[in-house]
Simulated scan of single mutants.
Amino acid sequence: MTETESSSDPDDDRTRYLRRGKWTEVASLAYNLTEVAVSVTAGLMTGSSALVSWGADSAVESAAAGTMIWRLRGEERGIGRRDVLRRKKVALGVLAGAFAVAVAFILYEAISKFVSQTPPGFNWWGIGILLVSLVVNPALAWAKHHYGKKLDSPALKYDAIDTLICEYQTVVVLIGLGLAKWLGWWWADPAAALLIVPYVAWEGWEAGRDAWRVDPEADEAAGG
């Protein structure tokens, strides 16, 4: 077999996948920050707790993308296994805290709307970012899962699941806004926000549990 026909170096392949996974997370970070800016602004302008809550979850996804960039970039630069695990533990801990804050914020926003019984307004910017997300999020989730599988990285695959959950939340918020707009069901908007809570809370629990289990002093063959 000639040199050109021989299989590529596994280390080179891993470096390439690390780089591509990192840039996937960079794209995720940029898009989620856009989601936060547009949805929270539109939600506050129209009084939509569902839009604001959706934006809060996008802020959590931004934190997830940022920590994943930090974690992948470290391995790409060749830091030791112990440092990789340490970064993974910190990243998961940050995510768990961000999810907890998001749950508290969503509950406050939804309950206050139930008390005031204030119907949400309608804003095409908010609807537009939700519709764009229906297309963008599945693509980001596929890429994260693909490179997570290539790298045998549970963290990347976990982040892909989080992105798919955001897709579910997008559908729920759209339905809630539609019912409030066309059927006059003011309660559909905060109800849609509350439907997001169990998924955000579960993700926070999972992230916290995984962070607790990570042992930077463990054998280099452990973790992912």
Rank of each mutant, 00 (worst) to 15 (best):
T118N: 05
A98T: 10
M68P: 10
P138Y: 09
K89R: 15
K144C: 11
P138C: 13
H145T: 13
L51M: 12
M68C: 14
R82P: 04
L44Q: 14
G66M: 00
K149M: 08
L151S: 02
N123A: 10
G66D: 07
D152G: 13
R71Q: 07
R81C: 08
S133Q: 14
V132E: 09
G128F: 11
V60H: 01
V136G: 03
T46Q: 03
D57N: 15
A50P: 11
G74K: 04
I111H: 04
L134V: 14
M45T: 13
G128R: 07
W142I: 13
K88C: 07
G148D: 06
W54E: 05
L140P: 00
K89Q: 15
A104V: 15
A100E: 13
N123T: 11
V84T: 12
M45G: 01
R81I: 10
L72I: 12
A98E: 11
F122L: 06
V132H: 10
R87Q: 07
G126K: 03
V115H: 02
A143I: 07
A91Y: 01
I111E: 09
W124C: 11
V103W: 02
F122C: 04
I79C: 06
A100N: 10
E109H: 14
L44K: 15
A143N: 06
D83C: 03
P120V: 01
I129N: 02
H145S: 13
H145Y: 12
G55A: 07
G74L: 10
L95G: 02
V38R: 00
T41I: 06
A139C: 14
S49Y: 02
D152W: 13
F105M: 12
Y108K: 05
A56F: 13
I79E: 06
S133H: 07
A100Q: 12
A65G: 11
G43C: 00
S48W: 03
